[in-house]
């Protein structure tokens, strides 16, 4: 059993107290209310399918991540050459040019974080499935971090978008996004949705006995 002691009645979850909060606006309602009185959102105490959504979005994100690395991210046309570069290729090129900082940023933002997100969300989902009772705080914090950082993976896409928008000097230099940009964006979106679908209360539910 976890550290929570239900029989003392010191800590009561809202669910046990028969309350439900709107996930959007936080308004507390009595259980049984269908619609939030404040934001008209659907009231649901626990979403049983949330884990499915998490997994679905996660898988989609993973699937979309592969073309993002295979296909070129940037199509660069200068006066004398046209080149396509993938994310990793771009990182390597940047490192070859000596821009270690930017290379590091791109690597972190475009490789480390998405992969890390995949792993994190996967771990969270698995841990919820297994009703793991240990390190709940850490897992909750992990969830918070994942959700917070997720959006920052779009940096790479922003870079591509800004470059494409700015460097359109017809003959001299023009940068166009490749397929990988779209794919990467999708991957990031999917992971964000996945993280958003994850209900962190499920982490704490493992500490409870069968709760309806």
């Amino acid at each position: 059993m976890g550290s929570a002691r239900a029989e003392t009645g010191d800590l009561i979850t809202a669910r046990e107290a028969g309350l439900v909060a709107c996930r959007r606006c936080g308004q507390v309602h009595w259980r049984g209310t269908q619609v939030c009185l404040r934001c008209d959102g659907a009231l649901q105490s626990r979403d049983e399918k949330s884990l499915q959504k998490v997994w679905a979005w996660l898988i989609a994100g993973i699937v979309a991540f592969f073309p993002a690395n295979i296909y070129p991210m940037l199509l660069t046309n200068t006066l004398i050459e046209r080149s396509e570069s993938t994310i990793l290729g771009g990182v390597v090129e940047l490192m070859n040019y000596g821009n270690y900082g930017i290379a590091g940023i791109v690597f972190v933002a475009s490789i480390v974080i998405p992969v890390g997100k995949f792993l994190a969300i996967g771990y969270l989902a698995v841990s919820v499935h297994r009703k793991d009772r240990k390190r709940m705080h850490q897992r909750h914090r992990l969830y918070e971090v994942v959700e917070f950082i997720g959006r920052w993976s779009m940096i790479d896409v922003f870079v591509v978008a800004i470059l494409s928008a700015l460097v359109q000097l017809n003959a001299i230099a023009s940068i166009n996004p490749g397929i990988a940009a779209v794919s990467f964006a999708l991957s990031v979106v999917f992971t964000m949705l996945s993280a958003q679908s994850f209900d962190p209360r499920l982490i704490w539910d493992a500490d409870r006995k069968d709760t309806p």
């Binding site: 399918k49 499915q52 679905a56």
Partner: peptide
């Protein structure tokens, strides 16, 4: 009924890829 519709997305992504 237990599956949510979300699973379509990864399926589609997979299929497309």
């Amino acid at each position: 009924s237990r599956l949510s519709f979300v699973w379509i997305v990864p399926v589609i992504a997979l299929v497309i890829s």
